[in-house]
Structures are given as C-alpha cells and as structure tokens.
Design a protein around this nucleic acid. Sequence first.
DNA 1: TGATACGCTATCGAAAACGTAGCACCCACA
DNA 2: TGTGGGTGCTACGTTTTCGATAGCGTATCA
Lengths: 112, 112
Amino acid sequence: MTTPLPGQPVRGSASGRPIMALLDLLGRRWSLRILWELHQGPATFRDLQARCESLSPSVLNTRLGELRQALLVENGEAGYCLTADGEELVRRCLPLADWAEHWANRLPVPEK
Amino acid sequence: MTTPLPGQPVRGSASGRPIMALLDLLGRRWSLRILWELHQGPATFRDLQARCESLSPSVLNTRLGELRQALLVENGEAGYCLTADGEELVRRCLPLADWAEHWANRLPVPEK
DNA sequence: TGATACGCTATCGAAAACGTAGCACCCACA
DNA sequence: TGTGGGTGCTACGTTTTCGATAGCGTATCA
C-alpha cells in the first residue's frame, strides 16, 4: 500500500489536495489511535502494541512506516514519538476528546 | 460490522471510553471523508458517491448506517446532512485543513 | 551461554472494501 | 399507461487489507 501524500492522487481524490491525502492517511485502521497513544508519551514498538491491546505487528509496522514517511512520527532515543508536526496535528485534534464526552451523554445507552 | 459507541468495548480498547469509540468510528475508510463532504453541504446518496469519486455504494451505505447510529448524520428533506452534533464535531476538526497546508509545504515534493 | 528485550518479517485465514449490476420505489410527463 | 428519470439501497464475486501467530536477527546484560 502506498502512503498518501499531498501532491499525489490518493484514494477518492485525484486532486492531490493536502486535506484529501490527510483524510486518506488518517482514515486507515489504527492511524488515529497510534497518534493518540504516542501523544500520551513515547513508546517502543512493543509498548505501542500493548497500548493498543495487541494489534498485529504487521499492521503496526505498516502504519508506522506510513506515519514516518509522512513525517508525523519518528524513532528516536526514547522509542517512537511524534515529530513537531505530528504533535501539532494531534494538538489540533484534542477538542475531539472533549466532544466525545458530550457525545456519549447524548447517545442512548447501548444495550450490554 | 458493529458500530462503535461509547460505553461498549471497541476494537483496540475494552474500556468503553468515548474517545476510543470515536477513534474506532472515524478510523474506518471513508468515515472522515464523508463527514468532510457533508460539511460542504447536504447531499443525496448518489451525490456523496460522486463527491468521493465513486466509492462503492455498499461501503457508503455501511458508513452512513454507522454515522446515523452515532447520531452524526441524518437523512432529511435535502438529502443526507450533518446533525447538530455532527456539525460540531467537524467544526472541531477544521484546524486540520489549515494544518494540512503547512504539512504539504514541509514534506519533500513526491515524485510524479 | 543463556535470558531478555528490541524492531521487525512471514505466513495464512478472516474480514473489509471494491466494482458492477440491478432492484424497488416514487414522480413527472406524454 | 408506460417510459424515463431520479431516489436509496442490495447482491455478489473479486481484490485488498487486516488479524493472529510464529519466529528471525540483533543487542544487552548476566
């Protein structure tokens, strides 16, 4: 699978607009979650697996490759962590956590 | 596939925390894109397909079902559109468009 | 020379997504 | 009354992606 990047046609949009590349990149299973977990602090490969309740190493490795190509994540001394850009991206998503709480309150309680 | 909702275990997290349900919901192919397109204005089923460059009706229908269960999208007079909650969610994601532009400038220009 | 941890790859079956065709419904119009 | 257009949506076979498990190669420390 190729990493969606600005300036290239991506799935669902031949335009190359940056937002489309971003939506494709983030709309892959575990992408958002991985960024979220790394925002909680740096982690080794195996740490990340554990935090995500044991997602496959193959998928994790694929996602990490994409996120590294996109310069959102890097592998440093302390293990994997967000780049400055990645940090800023997540920072802009933080209002989501807030919103999710309100959302939970408005939804009917799901059956167990 | 079951719709991830707060209060239930979701893929990658048994905790039921709202943010985890949200990350699961949005981390499915086309979810973010569909919300994005609906934020540009209401659309019929076929409009949505066209705006997303002809994604499969089966997938579109599945995503719409999930987003409707999550009370983010509804089917009204003018076709599909965001609910008040959905609108607020997207509003909180708008900084992403901005960020994506900066991101594009910092990335090496991809080969054609 | 084990013991342990690291990042990561290989393999294979299951699940999700894709592409295409077409159904059932409604409504205007001839 | 039938035909042409729109609607939302389903069916089905193929391809892609994901998931579960095992294990490799390296490094570190005892």
